[in-house]
């Protein structure tokens, strides 16, 4: 069995992605979980580039690995709970049920992917997934959701300030 360059690239990003994602769940310290999540986001961006989603890959790095993770790290350090945040006396039964349930869901999804296993990838031009191509769709077909997103972000900013304020 020979592997093409694309398959090798996929595996180079996919295997660390699964490992770091598992690290998020396995880590006892939230700081280690956050660091694993940053690595997972970078690997995910690599997978996105492999799917010709150039704009979304850049957004993944900027918004997720940049803004969202800084927010997470900021809160972890702000609360500075130290050893209090470590997972102590884990509930074994709960963990077992959670893992079994997740395995069931993954099995269900994997079975569902067999329906589309034979579908070929479409031939796409060089401009597929670029800022120009996505922007054109975003500002014509998805204009209303796009504007609604700006409202959502405004509400989120106001909500975050109000909730985190000491006295309302």
């Amino acid at each position: 069995m020979t592997f093409g360059a694309e398959t090798v690239t996929f595996l180079v990003f996919a295997i660390p992605l699964v490992l770091t994602a598992a690290g998020v769940v396995v880590s006892r310290s939230p700081m280690y979980a956050a660091m694993n999540l940053v690595a997972a986001f970078f690997c995910m961006a690599g997978i996105y580039v492999l799917l010709s989603a150039h704009l979304i890959a850049a957004l993944q790095i900027l918004v997720y690995a940049g803004a969202v993770m800084v927010l997470f790290l900021f809160v972890i350090m702000l609360l500075s709970l130290g050893t209090a945040t470590l997972e102590r006396d884990p509930q074994r039964a709960m963990q077992l049920v959670g893992v079994l349930g997740a395995i069931g869901v993954v099995g269900l999804l994997a079975a569902a992917t067999r329906e589309v296993a034979g579908l070929p990838m479409a031939e796409v031009g060089a401009d597929f997934g670029t800022v120009k191509a996505v922007g054109r769709v975003l500002f014509t077909h998805y204009l209303l959701p796009f504007e609604a997103t700006s409202l959502l972000l405004l509400v989120a900013i106001v909500g975050a300030v109000v909730v985190a304020k000491e006295k309302i």
């Binding site: 996919a14 992605l17 699964v18 994602a21 598992a22 998020v24 769940v25 997978i47 799917l51 884990p90 509930q91 709960m94 963990q95 049920v97 959670g98 893992v99 349930g101 997740a102 395995i103 869901v105 993954v106 999804l109 994997a110 992917t113 589309v116």
Partner: peptide, 18 residues
């Protein structure tokens, strides 16, 4: 890709539940 997404979803689900 779909299988990778399913595995990641499962890992996230384990985290949310446990």
């Amino acid at each position: 890709y779909l299988l990778l997404a399913a595995i990641l979803f499962g890992i996230g689900l384990v985290g949310v539940l446990t």
